[in-house]
Amino acid sequence: MTISVSVSTQVLDIQQLSAALQTASLGKCGALVTFTGLVRDFSTLSNVDALSLEHYPGMTERAMAALAEQAKDRWAVEHVVVCHRVGEMQSGDVIVFVGIASAHRAAAFDAAQFIMDQLKTCVPLWKKERSNGQWHWTAQKDSDRSQAARWSAPSGNGD
């Protein structure tokens, strides 16, 4: 069982991250689930021309590791990788990568979704966008809050 979390100002290479996870998983794991979050082409949505992420150095890593630990306690997963990009980024860049390896697929799917849902409400990262030369902080979405809340619902069956 391994947990690997990181925060980076550099471009995240999902091929490399996936390959490393696959190598670590050989033999014991029958399932490997990865999620990659990308920066959308903001120019088509609005006059946003840049995007940047601020974080709380130290706590960000701790919070991501805590989520990985919770996932490990809740599902039979072997390896958990969580990488988050910070700083200024371009359209098409990888913002976040979550990779889970487990013996069977259900645990890996659930753990990956759990980590992403929780990350959006528990990990100290803040997005800002630039339009017309001015930076604006992004507000948290209600949908992100409800996605995260479903994991603590008594039935736990989502919606």
């Binding site: 130290g58 992004t138 507000a139 948290q140």
Partner: peptide
């Protein structure tokens, strides 16, 4: 000290306390 806290969480000397808006990563 880098863990989410509540109104009644105790604070002592040399603690690090951070205030921030709702998070928007991912």
């Amino acid at each position: 000290n880098q863990t989410i806290a509540h109104e009644d969480t105790r604070i002592g000397p040399n603690d690090e306390v951070a205030f921030f808006p709702p998070v928007t990563g991912g």
